[in-house]
Simulated assay, not measured.
Amino acid sequence: MLFQIAGWRVIADFESLCESLWRAWGSSMKRLSARAGHAGLWRLLFARSHQEDPFAAIVRDPSLPNLLLIGDSISMAYTVPVRKLLSGRFNVERIPVNSTNSARLLAGLDEWINREYDVIHFNAGLHDLKRVPNPAEVMLEQDSIEGGERWIEPAAYRENMRNIMRRLKMGGARVIVATTTPVPPEARHRMAGEEQTYNAILRSEAKGNSVEINDLRRFILPFLSAAQRPRDVHFNETGSLLLAGQVAAAVLARATPARRS
């Protein structure tokens, strides 16, 4: 059951939901919420995060490690709640744009990686498998069409992901890649389930390049009916909060002290 609280549609049965989440998120998130309890953690996230700008510049605390989020609109939606969850633990920054597909992400790295980061969490895939009228010429603002070609075909996606991972590791950061979340039936401009083809490539390249995997697809599957918009790859507020928790848990899964220059 869903209801409204502080501007968010949320799952009403806190205890049932949280018990499932704690099993998925593990001890790091339990420690994070120990003082506030289940409801307290959710109230922290319900503080109208949807009204805050994910692209807002932050002032770094030099005593904390630095986390950079890179990705598409899915990551844009979970940026602010991740920032809240990791407040006092990490300086959480994100790139200033929607990185769309893997080719554009790769092309933007020299511009975006202009500071030192201890952890980089990224995703790419939903735009790669998107059907577009002309993959060589399509612009972000241009609408895609049913039956078109995939923006980035699997072979090119593999090469892009390999180069992204190698480039991100050059600076010494701990790198985490998130799997592509589910494409539901009747989602516009995409084929249901096609993310699994791209995720298989992602897993292979992550293993070959010693990059950690945050399996957002597997994590969110049990919550899709309450978390994902109908016939849409995007998530409602509940879904973005759940994904934020999983991203925070992945970041906290290993101790990451701030590097000293």
Rank of each mutant, 00 (worst) to 15 (best):
E237M: 13
P154K: 11
A173I: 06
W112S: 00
E237N: 12
D143T: 07
L32A: 12
N160D: 08
N98C: 14
N236P: 02
P133G: 12
L69T: 03
H127K: 11
M161T: 05
A39C: 09
Q196P: 00
R203L: 11
L252K: 02
E149L: 13
H189W: 14
T100A: 15
I113M: 00
L242F: 09
A255E: 12
F219K: 01
E205Q: 12
R35V: 13
A258F: 07
G40L: 05
L241D: 01
A136D: 12
T197S: 09
S240Q: 03
L32Y: 02
L44C: 12
R115A: 00
I176S: 04
A155G: 04
N199H: 09
R203D: 02
A57G: 03
L202S: 03
P133V: 13
R162E: 11
A206H: 00
L224Q: 05
G37I: 03
R217T: 08
A57W: 01
I74H: 11
F90C: 03
K130Q: 14
P62Y: 06
V132R: 08
R188K: 15
T179S: 15
A248D: 03
L17C: 09
K84I: 03
G108E: 08
K207L: 13
D143A: 15
F14I: 14
L21N: 01
A56M: 02
S75G: 08
A107C: 10
E186V: 05
A156S: 10
R104H: 14
E237A: 14
M29E: 05
A258N: 02
I164F: 04
P230Q: 09
E159W: 05
N66P: 00
P133N: 13
N163F: 04
R218F: 11
P96W: 07
L109Y: 07
L106M: 12
L68W: 02
P54S: 09
G88I: 09
M76K: 06
R254G: 10
D53E: 03
Y157I: 07
G26L: 07
R254W: 06
N134M: 06
R48C: 13
N199Q: 07
P222C: 11
G239S: 04
A200P: 00
D110E: 15
E146Q: 11
S225E: 14
F219M: 09
A47C: 10
L129N: 03
V175H: 07
V119T: 11
Q142I: 02
W22I: 13
L224F: 09
P222Y: 07
Q228L: 06
R48T: 09
A47P: 00
L41P: 01
P54C: 10
P65F: 07
E52H: 04
L106E: 08
R190D: 08
R231W: 05
R60L: 13
S261F: 07
L168K: 01
H189R: 15
L41W: 08
E93F: 05
N160S: 08
V251M: 05
